[in-house]
Computed example of a mutant assay.
Amino acid sequence: MQLTAPVTTGDESRPAARDADGMAVASFILGLLGLLVLNIFLGPIAIVLAAVSLWRGTARRGRALLGLTLGIADLAVLGIAMELSHTLSWSL
């Protein structure tokens, strides 16, 4: 039984914005990692996370845009590497 009202802070009143900020950071990190490994998987995930975080109105707009750019770059690197190696994957 709770006799008092729960204490809320300013951060708890906007959980969607906090989630959007986390998605922006995750898209940036996954886009950056995708340039090195698993770009066929990490690139599209970074693009989707960046788009959703921008749609939800993240406070980290720059990081979301970088994640979007890096996700697109992941797919571009994969396409170029596949064209040069004439295979469906690439290696260093």
Results as ranks from 00 to 15, higher is better:
92 L>I: 12
64 A>M: 05
59 A>C: 04
23 M>Y: 13
54 L>D: 01
83 E>A: 15
16 A>D: 13
67 G>C: 02
32 L>K: 08
89 S>R: 08
46 A>P: 03
61 R>Y: 04
85 S>I: 06
47 I>M: 11
32 L>P: 04
1 M>F: 07
70 L>C: 04
38 L>V: 11
50 A>C: 09
68 L>A: 09
86 H>F: 10
5 A>I: 08
75 L>G: 04
62 G>P: 00
27 S>Y: 10
86 H>P: 04
12 E>L: 15
11 D>N: 15
33 L>C: 08
75 L>V: 04
6 P>M: 08
29 I>F: 07
65 L>I: 11
46 A>W: 07
88 L>N: 13
56 R>S: 05
69 T>Y: 05
30 L>H: 00
80 I>H: 06
92 L>W: 13
29 I>L: 15
42 L>E: 10
30 L>E: 01
68 L>W: 07
69 T>K: 02
82 M>E: 01
14 R>E: 09
31 G>K: 04
1 M>S: 15
17 A>G: 13
75 L>Y: 09
69 T>L: 15
9 T>E: 12
82 M>I: 09
92 L>E: 06
18 R>A: 12
65 L>T: 05
72 I>N: 01
65 L>F: 06
91 S>W: 14
70 L>V: 05
15 P>E: 07
50 A>Y: 02
47 I>E: 02
28 F>R: 08
60 R>F: 13
77 V>P: 00
60 R>Q: 11
89 S>N: 07
86 H>G: 10
64 A>L: 07
49 L>N: 04
61 R>K: 13
22 G>E: 08
81 A>G: 06
